[in-house]
Simulated scan of single mutants.
Amino acid sequence: MSPGVEHRPSPVRAAGGPKGAWLTLLDKGADVLQPAAPLKAFDVYVAGLHCGRDDPAMQMEAHHYAKVVNGDLLQCVIFDGNTADANLIGIEYIVSGELFDGLPEEEKGYWHPHNYEVLSGQLSAPGLPQAVETSLMRQLLNSYGKTWHTWHTGTHAAPGHDLPLGGANLMWSFNRDGEADEGLRTDFESSLGLDSAAKRETRAQLRSAARPQRGVDLLEDAFTGTTPVPGVQDAG
């Protein structure tokens, strides 16, 4: 764990017994003899919240470890925590607004917008200096993510399954204040030492560059008592 980043363990313990001697030997051999080049570039840590596109009540933390492929594409592996025992729960591909605009129309429905996550302060890069984090968020402004979760381990208040069950779930972003469960949000922020209100104030400088995005209003009817955030607007 990097200095200055609070530990956030997984909400569940995976089913199964201890590793045993043969797995300990395997781990040691793999560390010395086998390359792990594809994994080394997944070195950008971003934490946020996700909900199910078809089941918005299914909400959870998402700890992304991202590889910056180029200025328009990121690849992320997603865990339910940021410690060594965290479970791999999904993947996310992130594209710039320009790449999104070039997608086939039928494909665009799989991709969720990111402007609320950025401008609300909900998305963070724990451990990065504020100026660096704000620069990263500027790059993520107007971007879209395609996210599949394969394991619902729940939240720290209500753990989910101890094994990945069922099919993959297409995930979505929150797009208004009040959509994320308040207990989930406050537990997430307090555990990582985050101040989304302060981040929101800092990122207000990004609003002028925010463009209307597809999918902002997709789940509007699934929530009540929500409040829009300046700069977050549906393109439709």
Results as ranks from 00 to 15, higher is better:
His114Lys: 08
Leu218Lys: 05
Gly20Glu: 07
Thr155Ser: 12
Asn175Trp: 01
Thr202His: 07
Thr202Val: 15
Pro212Cys: 02
Cys76Thr: 11
Thr226Leu: 01
Ala14Ile: 15
Ala62His: 04
Val132Tyr: 00
Thr83Pro: 05
Glu117Arg: 03
Phe100Lys: 09
Leu218Ile: 08
Arg203Gln: 02
Ala158Ser: 14
Pro9His: 01
Arg207His: 09
Glu182Pro: 01
Leu39Phe: 13
Trp172Asp: 14
Ser2Phe: 06
Gly16Met: 04
His114Leu: 14
His114Gly: 08
Ala86Asn: 06
Ser96Ala: 08
Ala158Thr: 09
Pro129Val: 04
Gly16Leu: 09
Asn115His: 00
Pro113Met: 10
Trp148Gly: 06
Leu26Ser: 12
Lys146Glu: 13
Asp54Met: 12
Pro18Leu: 02
Leu49Ile: 07
Pro9Arg: 00
Ala204Val: 07
Leu39Thr: 00
Ser96Phe: 03
Ser190Gly: 09
Ile89Val: 15
Thr226Cys: 01
Cys51Arg: 09
Val69Met: 07
Lys40Asp: 09
Asp217Asn: 13
Lys199Arg: 15
Ala62Ser: 08
His112Met: 13
Glu92Cys: 09
Arg203Gly: 02
Lys28His: 12
Glu179Trp: 00
His112Thr: 14
Asp72Val: 12
Thr147Lys: 03
Ala210Ile: 00
Asp43Leu: 11
Gly127Cys: 10
Pro18Met: 07
Glu105Ile: 15
Pro38Met: 14
Leu99Asn: 13
Arg8Tyr: 11
Asp31Tyr: 07
Gly29Pro: 05
Cys76Gln: 11
Gly231Leu: 05
Gly16Ile: 15
Leu23Phe: 06
Met60Gln: 08
Ser190Tyr: 06
Met60Glu: 10
Phe42Met: 14
Pro228Leu: 03
Asn169Met: 09
Leu165Pro: 00
Gly160Trp: 08
Glu117Gly: 12
Asp54Ile: 02
Trp22His: 04
Asn142Thr: 05
Ala158Arg: 08
Asp72Pro: 05
Pro9Ala: 12
Glu189Asn: 08
Ala180Ile: 00
Ser208Phe: 04
Met60Ile: 01
Glu117His: 10
Asn142Cys: 03
Gly4Met: 11
Ala210Lys: 00
Ser173Ile: 04
Leu39Pro: 00
Pro228Ala: 06
Trp111Arg: 03
Tyr45Thr: 03
Pro230Met: 00
Leu74Asp: 07
Phe100Ile: 15
Gly193Asp: 15
Arg207Leu: 08
Gly225Arg: 01
Gly193Thr: 10
Lys108Ala: 12
Gly167Cys: 03
Leu103Lys: 03
Lys108Gln: 12
Gly167Asn: 10
Ala158Tyr: 07
Gly17Pro: 02
Ala47Asn: 08
Met1Ala: 13
Arg8Leu: 15
Pro126Gly: 01
Trp22Met: 09
Trp111Pro: 05
Ala235Tyr: 08
Pro3Tyr: 06
Arg138Ala: 14
Val132Phe: 00
Ala86Cys: 10
Asp195Tyr: 14
Glu189Arg: 01
Gly167Ser: 11
His156Ala: 13
Arg211Cys: 11
